[in-house]
Simulated scan of single mutants.
Amino acid sequence: MLERKLLKDRAQVTFVLPADIPPGPVSVVGDFNGWKPGAHTLEPRSDGMRAVTVGLSAKRVHSFRYLAAGDYWFNEGHADGHDGTNSLLHT
Rank of each mutant, 00 (worst) to 15 (best):
G34Q: 00
A39N: 06
L7Q: 13
L88V: 04
G38C: 00
V13A: 06
A58E: 00
T41E: 15
N75A: 07
I21F: 14
L6M: 13
E3H: 07
G24P: 09
H82D: 09
L2I: 15
S27L: 01
G30V: 03
V16H: 01
G24V: 13
F32G: 12
P23G: 08
A68L: 00
T91Q: 03
K5L: 11
P25Y: 10
L17S: 06
T91W: 05
T85I: 15
P23A: 08
F74T: 13
V61P: 08
Q12P: 08
I21Y: 12
R50F: 14
P44L: 03
R10W: 12
Q12I: 11
H78K: 14
G81A: 08
F15Y: 09
G77W: 03
A19G: 02
T91G: 01
G77N: 08
R65F: 09
L67D: 04
S46H: 09
D9W: 11
G30P: 03
M49I: 06
M1C: 10
S63C: 09
D9I: 03
G24S: 07
P44T: 05
R45D: 15
T85W: 01
D80K: 04
P22Q: 03
G77C: 08
P25G: 02
K36L: 13
V61R: 04
N33S: 11
L7M: 10
E76A: 10
A68V: 05
K59C: 08
D9L: 10
N86G: 04
E3S: 06
D47W: 03
S57D: 15
H78M: 15
A58T: 10
G38Y: 02
G24T: 11
L42G: 00
M1R: 12
F15H: 05
V28W: 02
N33M: 02
R4E: 14
